[in-house]
């Protein structure tokens, strides 16, 4: 668990194509030093990275930004590697309900919330047995959509959701 969040920050910086700067950790508290500016706390660091990238992944207005905050916190708190299997199941179940009506976590476009949660859920999804993927069908659909961006996926494996389609009697082709 110790290296996980710093890995996410590295991945996000790479995805956003901005220098990560120096990341340190003191008493469970992450800090980023970049351009002589110090940012403390994972959430603030993520927003500072988005800001550096000048992308609009951080939200275009205050409501959107607040919702992104909420999802980042959700990811930081609930999606950690040290979770028990049961915790993970609760997490996936909740997420699955929420994603029934949603294509992306916030609004109708990709935001840093989707990006961060993708990195946070990678391990869980990778180890999830196929029949479980089917139980969390909305999470699977969302995850599959997010992971198709090569710049976001970087060197991580493309997680296979094709058994879902086989069980439907429908094949799925992927490039």
């Amino acid at each position: 668990m110790t290296t996980k969040h710093s890995q996410h920050l590295t991945d996000i910086a790479k995805y956003l194509n901005v220098p990560l700067g120096k990341i340190s950790k003191n008493d469970q508290l992450y800090a980023r030093i970049s351009n002589n500016k110090k940012t403390i706390g994972i959430l603030n660091i993520i927003f500072s990275l988005v800001k550096d990238s000048k992308s609009n992944l951080g939200g275009l207005e205050i409501t959107e930004e607040a919702l992104i905050h909420q999802w980042l916190e959700f990811g930081i708190i609930y999606a950690s590697d040290g979770n028990s299997k049961q915790n993970n199941q609760t997490l996936l179940k909740n997420l699955n309900n929420i994603l029934t009506t949603k294509t992306y976590l916030v609004g109708q476009r990709l935001t840093i919330a989707d990006v961060f949660l993708y990195y946070s859920l990678l391990n869980i999804m990778e180890t999830l047995p196929n029949f479980e993927k089917e139980n969390y069908i909305n999470v699977s659909r969302w995850f599959d959509n997010i992971q198709q961006d090569p710049s976001l996926r970087q060197n991580y494996n493309l997680i296979d959701f094709s058994t879902i389609y086989l069980s439907n009697g429908l094949g799925k082709h992927r490039v």
């Binding site: 069908i137 659909r141 599959d144 959509n145 959701f161 389609y165 799925k172 490039v175």
Partner: peptide, 8 residues
């Protein structure tokens, strides 16, 4: 199981 009709 798909976000968009063809190819994600």
């Amino acid at each position: 199981t798909r976000t968009y009709l063809v190819g994600e």
